[in-house]
Design a binder for these strands. Sequence first.
DNA 1: CCAGAAAACTACATCAAATGCAAAGTTACA
DNA 2: TGTAACTTTGCATTTGATGTAGTTTTCTGG
Lengths: 207, 207
Amino acid sequence: MSEVLGLRERKKLRTRHALIAAAIELFVEKGYEQTTVSEIAAAADVSTRTFFSYFASKEDVVFHNSRDGIDRALRVIAERGPGDRAVDLLSRAITSGFAALAVDDQLTREIAPINHLIMTVPSLRARGLLLLFDSQQELAEALHRACPDELNLAEASAAVGAVIGGAKLAAFVSMRHGASPEEMLEAGRQATEFTLNGLRAASQPLP
Amino acid sequence: MSEVLGLRERKKLRTRHALIAAAIELFVEKGYEQTTVSEIAAAADVSTRTFFSYFASKEDVVFHNSRDGIDRALRVIAERGPGDRAVDLLSRAITSGFAALAVDDQLTREIAPINHLIMTVPSLRARGLLLLFDSQQELAEALHRACPDELNLAEASAAVGAVIGGAKLAAFVSMRHGASPEEMLEAGRQATEFTLNGLRAASQPLP
DNA sequence: CCAGAAAACTACATCAAATGCAAAGTTACA
DNA sequence: TGTAACTTTGCATTTGATGTAGTTTTCTGG
């Protein structure tokens, strides 16, 4: 599992991290749109052209770890136990997806300003919504594959879209009304429960 | 209500429509990214600079009528009757929002290719998701204002996000699996019902 | 109908993101 | 150590988008 990296690979990783760190710092300091790619590259001590061999666009730096949450959720679904019903599986998947956002360790310090950028800069918000949307497709397909007898693909899509859609909007609206990151997360969690309860009620009419 | 427009206003409207028509035609013919703003302007017989005094960006042409659906939905909510419960109100609002997409008249011929563009071109999909997301905020706030005793703002957000989120994902996934526009709309409708039933079940535990 | 104000259009300059390309530099490995 | 593979770089180019200044068109009131 643990590869020994050659000098080339190590240098590439270092450059990548330098670019990310420089970019985030500049974005936070002087704003996303006010920061140019040249400035980021200069701060990381590479040429502007090199930036684009690490990231396809300026936006991509912000979303460099965007697959963490979805990968966790997919793993949870893949590890379905024999007694798991679809709703429970979905519940656990979403929870572990949230966990990627709410990491307790020092990463929080890095993640919080990035989330703030994503929610306040329109082009980043759009990109974030796109990534989340595409993740939901993966999730719906995985959930359907995990429980083919319980949910067809359309139902799985409706369920996944409903739970995430509700959580997303509730969290965002709470933020817009002045909630702290923790309160925001809590609003998302409550909305998740709210919707999941609805799904449970609808999917178990006769016990 | 009906204003008599001066020559200036009429010309502006004509130019605007010419730009929209030229843009859509070119987008459909040779692809969104392959079409430049200069080409659109040339096809509409104005300078490139003038294009940007009608639309803030190339994307904006595609979304020129993006507020139709949300405005309909908001109107439905504003016209709440005394006996209306929040879920029914939401149901009607969504239905009428759908109606803006599923117009039966000849507009369909104009709308179908635009929707296809929005769903297939990533940057347009992102922009569409952003617009829809912001609409949902308006909708949630309106629903809360219309039924303040039944739903607080967080609950209204969860409900709106869930219903629209589910419909959106179900419709899109069905399209990705080869559904026709009509089938797609039907998938969205069914998902809407699916989620609304859940909400109804959860919000009426004891009759 | 005409003169001047207001609005719209145009050409031009400029900037930033993004891409292609070929030359120069670095790492890997036999 | 020499050469093949890979990375970085500078340069040119395209495109979207914005500021500005000057021209043309429309409007309004006499």
